[in-house]
Amino acid sequence: MKARVHVMLKNGVLDPQGEAVRHALGTLGFEGVNSVRQGKVIELELDETNRETAEAQVTKMCEDLLANTVIESYNVELLS
Protein backbone atom coordinates (compact mmCIF):
# COMPACT_ATOMS: atom_id res chain seq x y z
CA MET A 1 0.00 0.00 0.00
CA LYS A 2 1.16 3.51 -0.82
CA ALA A 3 0.57 6.45 1.44
CA ARG A 4 1.17 10.13 0.94
CA VAL A 5 1.63 12.51 3.83
CA HIS A 6 1.22 16.26 3.51
CA VAL A 7 2.94 18.29 6.20
CA MET A 8 2.17 22.01 6.45
CA LEU A 9 3.02 24.70 8.95
CA LYS A 10 -0.06 25.31 11.07
CA ASN A 11 -2.24 28.28 10.28
CA GLY A 12 -0.93 31.25 12.18
CA VAL A 13 2.69 30.05 12.08
CA LEU A 14 4.60 32.49 9.91
CA ASP A 15 6.02 30.78 6.83
CA PRO A 16 9.00 32.91 5.76
CA GLN A 17 9.77 30.61 2.82
CA GLY A 18 6.23 30.86 1.48
CA GLU A 19 6.44 34.64 1.90
CA ALA A 20 9.68 34.74 -0.11
CA VAL A 21 8.09 32.68 -2.88
CA ARG A 22 5.10 35.06 -2.91
CA HIS A 23 7.45 38.03 -3.33
CA ALA A 24 9.34 36.28 -6.11
CA LEU A 25 6.08 35.54 -7.95
CA GLY A 26 5.20 39.23 -7.71
CA THR A 27 8.61 40.13 -9.16
CA LEU A 28 7.93 37.78 -12.09
CA GLY A 29 4.72 39.64 -12.81
CA PHE A 30 2.23 37.14 -11.39
CA GLU A 31 -0.33 39.42 -9.85
CA GLY A 32 -3.00 38.76 -7.28
CA VAL A 33 -1.14 36.06 -5.29
CA ASN A 34 -2.32 36.86 -1.79
CA SER A 35 -0.60 34.10 0.11
CA VAL A 36 1.85 31.24 -0.44
CA ARG A 37 2.34 28.45 2.07
CA GLN A 38 5.08 25.91 1.52
CA GLY A 39 4.94 22.39 2.91
CA LYS A 40 6.29 18.89 2.41
CA VAL A 41 4.98 15.80 0.68
CA ILE A 42 6.27 12.45 1.93
CA GLU A 43 5.44 9.26 0.04
CA LEU A 44 5.67 5.88 1.73
CA GLU A 45 5.42 2.35 0.37
CA LEU A 46 4.15 -0.03 3.01
CA ASP A 47 3.90 -3.80 3.36
CA GLU A 48 0.56 -3.36 5.06
CA THR A 49 -2.47 -4.11 2.87
CA ASN A 50 -5.25 -3.23 5.29
CA ARG A 51 -6.27 0.39 4.84
CA GLU A 52 -7.26 1.04 8.42
CA THR A 53 -4.10 -0.48 9.84
CA ALA A 54 -1.97 1.40 7.31
CA GLU A 55 -3.65 4.68 8.16
CA ALA A 56 -3.11 4.08 11.87
CA GLN A 57 0.55 3.21 11.23
CA VAL A 58 1.23 6.31 9.17
CA THR A 59 -0.61 8.53 11.64
CA LYS A 60 1.67 7.24 14.38
CA MET A 61 4.69 7.93 12.12
CA CYS A 62 3.48 11.51 11.70
CA GLU A 63 3.04 12.01 15.43
CA ASP A 64 6.44 10.49 16.25
CA LEU A 65 8.64 11.85 13.48
CA LEU A 66 7.25 13.06 10.17
CA ALA A 67 5.60 16.18 11.60
CA ASN A 68 6.46 18.39 14.53
CA THR A 69 2.96 18.90 15.86
CA VAL A 70 4.06 21.98 17.80
CA ILE A 71 4.25 23.88 14.52
CA GLU A 72 3.00 21.56 11.78
CA SER A 73 -0.23 19.87 10.81
CA TYR A 74 -0.38 16.73 8.68
CA ASN A 75 -2.76 14.86 6.49
CA VAL A 76 -2.53 11.17 5.57
CA GLU A 77 -3.75 9.96 2.19
CA LEU A 78 -3.83 6.28 1.17
CA LEU A 79 -3.22 5.81 -2.53
CA SER A 80 -3.90 2.15 -3.31
Binding site: L9, V13, L14, P16, A20, N68, V70
Partner: peptide, 15 residues
Protein backbone atom coordinates in the same frame (compact mmCIF):
# COMPACT_ATOMS: atom_id res chain seq x y z
CA UNK B 1 12.32 17.91 19.00
CA UNK B 2 12.64 15.45 21.90
CA UNK B 3 10.07 17.44 23.86
CA UNK B 4 12.54 18.08 26.70
CA UNK B 5 12.06 21.80 26.02
CA UNK B 6 8.84 23.40 24.74
CA UNK B 7 8.33 25.23 21.46
CA UNK B 8 10.16 24.88 18.16
CA UNK B 9 12.78 26.62 16.02
CA UNK B 10 11.75 27.54 12.52
CA UNK B 11 13.42 29.29 9.57
CA UNK B 12 14.83 32.74 10.40
CA UNK B 13 12.30 35.45 9.63
CA UNK B 14 14.72 37.08 7.17
CA UNK B 15 15.39 33.67 5.52
Amino acid sequence: ETGLLPGALIRNAGL
